[in-house]
């Protein structure tokens, strides 16, 4: 635990923090509003006292009531992992600014969070399903996802239809979807 670092975080981000800075083991946790993510991340990345150049992880979380996006950052100035929790994303409007302007590599992690939670990262230029088929209907890591009804409601019963490469002549005739009977 790095007490000095905690003080530094509190001094720098005093007004945007929504909760106390917590520390446990080798982690320091700060909570912010989703709207503040770009500004906070830019400060963390560019400030010469902080220099968080390395993005360790980006995870979506469903707390059961609302969503969170959790970032883990690493810097040379502290031996701790910095955990930034963007808290309180509403279920009906799960929108949060993207951080791809800083870390282009977060693009796929955001795609994954969209795929699993339906979180919409505004500013991500490639926000689509990454693991699941494009026509999948629900978001499996949400806490109210139940396999029997949700997956089966997707076209093909959760099974991706075969990509067919027909000859131009019979292109229309070969598209067979199993949902024709399911609906």
């Amino acid at each position: 635990m790095d007490r000095a670092f905690r003080a530094l975080i509190e001094r720098t981000f005093g007004d945007v923090l929504t909760g106390p800075v917590r520390q446990r083991h080798d982690e320091t946790e700060m909570r912010i509003r989703p709207g503040d993510v770009p500004q906070v991340m830019r400060t963390l990345h560019d400030d010469p006292r902080l220099r968080f150049e390395y993005l360790g992880d980006l995870a979506g979380v469903d707390t059961g009531t609302d969503f969170q996006v959790v970032y883990h950052l690493w810097s040379v100035v502290t031996p701790d992992w910095l955990r930034v929790v963007a808290d309180g994303i509403p279920r009906d409007q799960p929108r949060i600014p993207s951080i791809t302007f800083l870390w282009k590599g977060a693009e796929w992690m955001e795609r994954e969070a969209y795929d699993m939670f339906g979180l919409v990262f505004e500013g991500n230029r490639d926000l689509r399903r990454i693991y699941l088929p494009d026509d999948f209907v629900s978001f499996p890591l949400r806490k109210d996802f139940h396999l029997p009804d949700d997956a089966s409601r997707s076209p093909g019963g959760g099974v991706r239809p075969m990509e067919d490469a027909p000859t131009p002549a019979d292109a229309a005739a070969t598209t067979v979807r199993r949902t024709a009977t399911a609906r």
């Binding site: 629900s138 949400r142 009804d149």
Partner: peptide, 16 residues
Amino acid sequence: HAGIFEPIPLARTERQ
């Protein structure tokens, strides 16, 4: 009835 499961409609992304 399953409103929350409706995907947020997204057209083809910029990248696509």
